[in-house]
Amino acid sequence: MSTKETAQTVQDPHQPYPLASVSPVKADEPVAWYRYHAAAAADKAEVKTVRTEARTVFMQQFGQRCRAARGVREINDVAAAVGVHRNTIWNVERGDSLPDAFELEVLAREYNTTPTQLLGGESLDAARSTAVPRGVRAVQADELIYVPLFDLREQAEGAAFTDADSVLAMRPFDAQFIRYDLGIAHDDLAMFGVVGTSMEPWLHARDSVLADLRDRDALTEGVHLIRLDGALLMKKLQRLPGKILRVSSYNAAYEPFDIQGHESADRDFAVLGRVRWAGVTFN
């Protein structure tokens, strides 16, 4: 019986999804796909063909997981650490070769993961997300950086981004995006949801933004999170002559105002960070 004929097995009305009629998708489950078709193959030549196809897909997926596990590290650094030529790492990541059991164990330990995860037995992202505890600072785990998402409504007065109880979740970002695209080399990052309409039409309520908490001096003009008289506000900041800081909104209904450099030190005003990224929610 050919593979094609096997896939046309008559369905038992009392067994909605009979095992013999369900063919795993090769791109998703190459091993299961191979075992299914190998069992139904007409001869050894057909077994060899389906094995080659499944193995090719498996090698590509394994290479992708190894590339993700390597993250921002250079291939030369990994090759030197595990004692192989850089082409060995390169060929694995391209899906052209598979390591033996010893090399697999060495690679897994170098990448701070397990052979099972590299082989696809457990999602790397799922394993890491459960291992990253909630905290007030971002945490890098290989190729991902988990940024705390704060509920600013739950912040204690004067304690913005320092209250771990107000962290709703740790949101993952690609490490290369944070380190290279945004140029942020530290982990003092925070996410929070937009509240109100002062930044419309640029941002709306329920959108999320990511802020660099070390960019507090407003030397770089842009959108910042500020504290003013006990309230947390997201505003555009512009430096004017005479040590004047103009604070404005995108929504024209909100009047701009100025902060004078000579104002009383008792005035509750501070720049808490600069917004570097925003995620827009479509209703």
Rank of each mutant, 00 (worst) to 15 (best):
D207V: 09
L245V: 07
T130A: 14
R227W: 02
A205K: 11
G261H: 01
A205L: 05
D174T: 07
K236T: 09
V209A: 12
K243Q: 13
L144V: 02
D163L: 07
D174E: 15
D217T: 13
E200F: 09
R134T: 02
V167S: 01
M199R: 06
P201H: 08
S166E: 01
N251H: 13
D207F: 00
G135N: 11
R171C: 04
L213C: 07
H186E: 06
A185T: 15
V167D: 01
D229K: 09
R216L: 01
G183F: 00
E154V: 02
P256S: 08
A156W: 06
K236G: 11
P133H: 07
H186R: 05
F150A: 04
E154C: 14
S248C: 10
G230H: 06
R171H: 08
A160D: 09
A169R: 00
A218H: 11
L144Q: 14
I184A: 12
W202L: 14
M234D: 10
Y146W: 04
W202P: 04
Y250I: 03
R214K: 12
D212W: 06
F177V: 07
D142M: 12
D212Q: 06
A159F: 05
E200R: 13
L240F: 04
Q260D: 09
H204F: 15
R179M: 13
M191W: 10
A159I: 07
E143A: 11
L219Y: 08
W202N: 14
M199N: 11
L228N: 11
V195R: 15
Q155Y: 09
L213D: 04
E143T: 11
A156Y: 06
L189R: 05
D151Q: 00
D165F: 04
G135V: 06
M170T: 01
K236I: 05
A231W: 02
H262R: 13
F192A: 02
H262Y: 13
R214Q: 09
F161N: 01
R246F: 05
A205G: 15
A138I: 05
A138H: 03
R134H: 10
A252K: 13
A205H: 13
P133A: 10
A141N: 10
V195D: 13
A205D: 12
P256I: 03
L240R: 14
L152R: 12
R246Q: 12
S129D: 14
I184F: 05
R171W: 14
A141T: 10
V194C: 05
P241I: 08
V209K: 11
L240C: 05
Y250A: 08
F192L: 12
Q260S: 13
Q176W: 08
G242T: 10
L182T: 03
L225E: 01
E255W: 00
P241Y: 04
G261E: 01
L152Q: 05
D174F: 03
K243T: 06
E263P: 00
R206D: 13
E154A: 15
P148W: 15
P241C: 07
R179D: 04
A169W: 00
R134L: 12
S166V: 02
G196Y: 09
A253S: 12
P148H: 10
E255T: 14
